[in-house]
Simulated scan of single mutants.
Amino acid sequence: MEVIPKDRILQLYPDTLYQVRKEINLEKPGEMKRAVNILKEWIKQQPHFIKKDFPDFYIETAIVGTKGSIERAKKQFDKVCTMKTLMPQFFNTHDVRKELAVDLEKAIYLAMLPKLTKEHYRVFATKVIGVFENSSSYTKYFKFCLHMAEYAKNHDYVGSFRMVADLTDCNLMDYISKINILEIRQVMSIFMDGYGMKIKGIHFISQSKAIDALLTIFKQVLKPKIAGRMHVHKTCSELHAIIEKDVLPIDFGGTERSMKELFDEWVDVLSTDEHKEYIKHINSAGTDESLRPTDKFNQEYAGLPGTFRLLTVD
């Protein structure tokens, strides 16, 4: 694909496609198309893949997510398909408005921001406005995130992300007490290993001393390299040296629409008949493990077996 269709919510720069391809050394004419065709043929040859007719753009964004490595893109496809089979609890929601948004909007707003940073990074923003009733609220939050991720796989074209979370107005200790570390580990594995999300920075805005306990939790589930990219800011204004104000919502001292407006727009986008049909189709892309040539992948990557040390907060 040489031209990215204009999207309803996600904006790109005129040169984003070229710049992102240049970063992964696939900017020359025909190079990306050849890479897509190689990966497409490989997918068709996998006996354990239930679905094999992925859109070319979906395949291309997988290659972008692995910095142009076809071999890593193969592993990524295998991982995300396997995860949909082994962790179906994250992929069984089709009506975002009724099953997720009704509860989430009482406690939290989340959105992929419309504008890119000057580095062509996408920003994922969260603003806490209330209280999570229980740990199931986190599950709904993660499911909403996965819907946005699948939408982005089919509509966006970025190589890296920054994540920002405004925790100023929440009882942080209450939120921490309801965290399921195993669930966070599984979800982060889906995002980073399955969807190829490259995180350039994780930014928390909080003045609470409890933020150290939250960082400790994330250090248990993130790879050291990513954990080293976590930053705590006491005010939103400290973000402006990292992310341009025109990218950030007014809630973060920026000029973009409010988090509530953006969240509502995402709910609308993810509640269309088109997205509902798409998500049913793409979530069917699991695996038939009886047909897999080897069980090595499940043992090495799935992340389900094993024990996890839980953090106890007094």
Rank of each mutant, 00 (worst) to 15 (best):
E2S: 08
I4H: 04
K6N: 07
Q11T: 14
Q11K: 14
L17Y: 11
K22D: 15
E23G: 10
G30Y: 01
K33H: 05
Q45R: 06
D56M: 02
A62L: 03
V64T: 12
K67G: 05
K67S: 15
G68Y: 08
G68D: 08
I70Y: 03
E71V: 10
Q76V: 00
E99A: 06
E99G: 13
A107C: 14
L110Q: 15
M112L: 13
L116M: 06
E119Y: 05
Y121Q: 14
R122V: 10
E133L: 07
K153D: 15
A165K: 00
T168L: 02
I181W: 02
R185H: 14
V187K: 06
I202S: 01
H203V: 04
H203Y: 05
K219F: 04
K219Y: 09
Q220S: 13
H231S: 13
H231F: 10
H233I: 06
V247L: 03
P249E: 00
D251L: 00
D251T: 00
S258H: 01
D264M: 10
E265V: 06
W266T: 11
D268F: 04
T272L: 03
E274C: 02
K276V: 11
K276P: 07
N283W: 07
S290N: 11
N298I: 12
E300G: 02
Y301E: 13
A302E: 09
G303E: 09
R309E: 13
R309N: 14
